[in-house]
Simulated scan of single mutants.
Amino acid sequence: MHELPLVIFTVLSQLAVGGIVTLWWMDWKNTIQWKTGLLISLSLVVIGGVAVLVSMFHLGHPFAAYRAILNIKVSWLSREVTFYGAFVGLSLLYTWFWFKDVSTWRGISGAIAAILGGIAIFSSAKIYMIPVIPAWNGMTTMMMFFLTSILLGPLFVGLFLLIRGELSMKITTFVLFGFIAAAIVMLLYFSGLQGGLPQAGESLRLMTGQFIFWLRLFTFVIAFAILAINSIGKQKQTGITYSVVFLLLLISEFLARFQFYETAVHL
């Protein structure tokens, strides 16, 4: 459970980045109302802020976390801290421009926040892509981190839009493709572990030997099935349906990230 702060931080911060990118894109396309955009932006700033605060509990000296930025030239950890901090700051500014309803500056600040968020996720993934832990040292780690953002962010925004009666089917379709991409990456990850170094195979054995692995797969499949059936059948999306899908996927991502840390085997 020592890695729990990192689990919470990575999942929530990636959700926030995906949400900001989705909101910015919808605002750019002029497909979202002002009040709804403001509420979503506020919510994502809170989520991003909570993620950063929780991450500090992983440090031996949380109040000295600011020192992490001092090695930005050589350390991916320093870059992660710097860019996530900048992302939260720009997200706050983005929310301010939503509040003031200044569309031009809102678009600029949102675009910068989205870029910073993407760099932050990239930096976060690079921390773990190290040869000493074979289960982490591959592009699937990068893909999984970005897919968490791609799945949870739009789904979170979609839930808000649905509650306010503004949901676009484009978000549902995008999330469904995200599910398919995540399933493919999952298979690539498992096959890579199986055919990799002995330590990678041991990580896979530890992973599949835990109940939460199967619970993770179950929640992922059920979330996809519910969304796909409702979409293909062209049934009216409801707040309950979207809420269940979001909750199941959030649980799935938390369990997957927990196992990512807990089943890592060193060389």
Rank of each mutant, 00 (worst) to 15 (best):
L187E: 02
F160M: 08
I133L: 04
G201P: 02
P198S: 03
L155R: 05
T173G: 12
P154R: 04
K170T: 13
Y128L: 08
L116N: 08
L161Q: 14
L167F: 06
V157R: 09
I127R: 07
M144D: 14
M129C: 10
F211M: 05
L215V: 15
L147F: 10
M169S: 15
I133Y: 14
A111M: 09
A135R: 00
P134E: 00
M143V: 09
G118Q: 04
P154G: 11
T140L: 09
L167P: 12
I180P: 02
L161A: 10
R216D: 15
R205D: 11
S123K: 03
G110Y: 04
R164C: 08
L204S: 05
S168F: 07
M207C: 10
S124D: 05
L162T: 15
I184M: 13
I212E: 12
T140G: 02
V185S: 05
V175F: 07
P154C: 14
F211N: 05
I150H: 02
L176I: 15
M186Y: 12
G153A: 11
S123V: 02
Q194R: 12
G178R: 02
G153H: 09
R216P: 08
S168A: 10
A120L: 06
G209E: 02
I112V: 15
F174E: 06
L193H: 02
L151Q: 01
G153D: 09
L147T: 10
T219V: 14
A113R: 00
G195H: 07
I212M: 12
T208F: 10
I212L: 10
M207A: 12
F179G: 11
F220I: 10
P134S: 03
V157P: 01
P198Y: 01
I115Y: 01
M144Y: 08
A111F: 13
S203P: 05
W136F: 14
T141N: 01
S124E: 08
K126F: 01
I121V: 03
L151I: 15
G153T: 06
F122W: 13
L162I: 06
Q199M: 09
V185H: 08
F177A: 03
I133R: 07
W136L: 05
P131G: 08
I171S: 09
L116W: 07
V221L: 12
M142P: 09
K170Q: 09
M142S: 13
M186H: 14
L215M: 10
I180G: 08
S149A: 14
T219Y: 05
A125R: 01
M129N: 09
A125Y: 07
L167S: 06
G110P: 09
T219D: 07
S123L: 05
R164K: 14
T172S: 04
G117P: 03
M142G: 06
I127G: 09
F174R: 06
L162S: 14
L176V: 11
A125P: 02
I212V: 13
A120N: 00
W214I: 12
M144T: 15
A182Q: 11
E202I: 05
F218A: 15
K170G: 07
I212G: 00
L152Y: 07
A114P: 11
G165S: 08
R164W: 13
P198A: 00
M143P: 00
T172C: 11
F190H: 13
T141C: 03
L188K: 12
W214C: 07
M129K: 06
G138A: 11
